[in-house]
Design a protein around this nucleic acid. Structure first.
Length: 599
RNA sequence: GCGCCCUUAGCUCAACUGGAUAGAGCACCUGCCUUCUAAGCAGGCGGUUGCAGGUUCGAGUCCUGCAGGGCGCGCCA
């Protein structure tokens, strides 16, 4: 089964080949001029260049072969040599029925299944997630779902930031504030034997009452600032980091408490966003690999001593810029960001053996990943080219600067979600929607509307560019928004419910009206949108398709009455509406957006 | 200083990797609810694609320069 575009491409390619021209020129695309054609091929123009012939003459040779194609109702040469094709209602109806009967709604599967690991979200221990984690979470989730749906074996990993200098900072800050904890930690650190299960339980209970995530969130910025200003404070934090990494019992126990406290909040936020992971691995999970890795890197002759640290130089001849080296061991003996990243490459190679690893991380870290990837290739930890940084732009406020609250602080993700939910409830009430729903169902709908608003606002943009996040604008819920898409889906559901109530059944789709044609052509275009999203790791192609599909349905809905139509037409339109709903919901699912039953 | 990215309608963003008349949404204007949910539909207004060159039959897209903006450049992640 293939979409019309691909099917026609094959025919046009064959026609080009028959004319003694390269078959690649037969590539067919949806028409730029829907008033003139459904599909077009620009190959004759390209051929004219190399063959030094009149493009219209080449096009004429190709169209002569195509004229007999039963799928086409018209084949014309237009302009300088565009080949315009109009698909027959019969062929379009056939394709629509095929999609309606297909569990995958017309989407094809990759030819060769690959093993893919998607590294996204990257929450930190001891810090609540903030808006900066939003894009990675929702883009990563969408990419994971898109890859999985196309047939790859995909694993999503949250990749915790739980093992760096920030841990030493926060440990020190907590101990400074609470003498009880300081005493507890130091007492444990001073011992030789490990902490027993009983002691651990008691200690966790005490810590539970004394250190909350709010405390950590309050202390961390202060400690970070102090670490920057005060050399001694910084040195101490670094020392603590190194001792934590050496598993000093007190530090390690306190750190485990931080991780526990953090995870509760993370699970709440991820659950609210509909983001879930196959792996919750952190930087600390590869700690045991680091010492042997360093040894091995040394044996391979890759490590160089420099300014008290040990580094890998990754510069290559022909580089336009001076890439910094990878800092493997700091002068304090600590593992750095890049060290754990490199060890993680190694860990994944051993445990999962991915064909490709996608790092869904802020574009600003492009250089960092280039350095890590080069080091990994040098060390033989990953096949050249298998590691890819999927960068994205920052989410800015209406002032064009990175998003802040009115008070100038960083907005927590949970607060953002809550604000959006509140707006969604308000808007539902204003529009007098969901009035018949019971309170739980109303809240559920409001939540789905909020998540749709949030995610669609992000995913409709190409990930690489920064975008302005304007709460007032995106909570207005008009036009090209998530709620619009949900609204269209809900309208279809409503019609289908009514049809079911009166016992009406879907039947064979017969395309006739212009609005039906348009809708069927869009249903057919799904596979292409999916392939684009897949190849370019860009969910906006799915978002765009979903929006166009919803728009086409809305036009169809306005132009073609369903329930009051004559029986055969009614059955056809019901089938078309049903297929549209299923494809729309599928596309939204790939974006991580759920649709309510009513709103 | 070096490097990377960006600049498209008043605003927010697209444009299937060089093709026809650069598309959507918001805002603004005009119509349409005793037919299936009007958060909707139909139509209108709005562009020298930052500027100047170049390559090409053809450039928002490729090349060069300039201007403006953002970001990154080893012991944070």
């Amino acid at each position: 089964m293939s979409d019309l575009k691909r099917g026609l491409s094959e025919a046009v390619a064959a026609a080009f080949a028959a004319a003694g021209l390269p078959a690649e020129l037969g590539r067919v695309t949806p028409s730029d001029r829907p008033d003139l054609a459904d599909f077009q091929c620009n190959g004759a123009l390209a051929a004219a260049k190399t063959a030094r012939r009149d493009p219209r003459e080449i096009a004429a040779g190709v169209t002569a072969t195509l004229a007999a194609d039963p799928r086409l109702s018209a084949v014309e040469i237009a302009g300088l040599g565009f080949i315009n094709m109009r698909v027959s209602d019969t062929a379009l109806s056939e394709r629509a029925n095929e999609i309606a009967a297909d569990p995958r709604l017309g989407a094809s599967v990759v030819e060769a299944r690959r093993r893919i690991l998607v590294d996204y979200a990257g929450p930190n221990v001891a810090k609540p997630m903030h808006v900066g984690h939003l894009r990675s979470s929702i883009i990563g989730e969408a990419i994971k779902r898109i890859y999985r749906f196309r047939g790859d074996l995909v694993v999503g990993d949250a990749h915790f930031g739980d093992w760096g200098y920030q841990m030493g900072l926060i440990i020190g800050a907590v101990m400074d504030e609470d003498p009880f904890i300081k005493a507890l930690v130091e007492q444990l650190n001073g011992r030789n034997q490990p902490v027993s299960a009983e002691e651990e339980k008691t200690a966790f209970a005490a810590l539970h009452d004394r250190v909350s995530l709010e405390d950590l969130d309050r202390l961390y910025p202060l400690a970070a600032a102090k670490g920057k200003a005060d050399i001694e404070y910084r040195e101490r934090a670094r020392r603590m980091t190194a001792e934590l990494q050496a598993k000093a019992p007190g530090y390690h126990l306190l750190w485990r408490h931080f991780a526990r406290v953090t995870k509760v909040a993370l699970e709440r936020d991820f659950h609210a966003l509909g983001v879930d992971f196959d792996l919750w691995k952190g930087e600390s999970d590869v700690d045991d690999l680091i010492a042997p890795m360093v040894k091995e890197l040394d044996a391979k002759g890759l490590l160089v001593d420099d300014q008290g640290a040990r580094i890998i130089r990754v510069a290559r001849q022909g580089d336009k810029r001076d890439l910094p080296p990878l800092l493997v061991v700091s002068s304090e003996g600590s593992a750095m960001y890049g060290t754990t990243d490199l060890a993680t490459v190694l860990d994944r190679e051993r445990s999962f053996d991915p064909d490709q690893v996608l790092y869904v991380v802020d574009q600003r870290q492009a250089d960092h990943f280039e350095v890590v990837f080069r080091a990994a290739y040098l060390a033989g930890y990953a096949p050249e080219g298998s590691l890819e940084h999927i960068g994205f732009g920052t989410m800015n406020g209406t002032d064009g600067k990175p998003f802040k609250t009115r008070e100038g602080g960083v907005l927590k993700l949970n607060d953002l979600i809550e604000m959006t939910r509140t707006k969604a409830r308000e808007r539902l009430r204003e529009a007098d929607l969901g009035a018949e729903l019971d309170p739980d169902a109303f809240d559920d709908t409001a939540h789905k509307v909020a998540v749709a608003a949030l995610k669609f606002a992000d995913l409709q943009n190409f990930r690489g560019t920064s975008y302005v996040f304007d709460l007032d604008r995106f909570t207005s819920f008009e036009g090209k928004t998530g709620p619009y898409l949900l609204y269209q889906a809900v309208r279809v559901k409503s019609v289908l419910r009514k049809a079911a109530d009166e016992g009406a059944e879907a039947g064979e789709i017969v395309i006739g009206e212009p609005a039906e044609r348009e809708l069927a052509l869009l249903l057919d275009a799904f596979d292409h949108a999916l392939a684009e999203a897949y190849e370019r790791k860009a969910p906006n192609f799915i978002a765009d398709h979903a929006y166009k599909l919803a728009q086409a349905f809305s036009r169809f809905y306005a132009a073609c009455p369903i329930l009051i139509a004559e029986p055969p037409v009614k059955a056809s339109r019901l089938a078309l509406a049903s297929a549209t709903l299923r494809q729309l919901e599928l596309a939204l699912t790939l974006l991580g957006i759920e649709t309510p039953e009513r709103m």
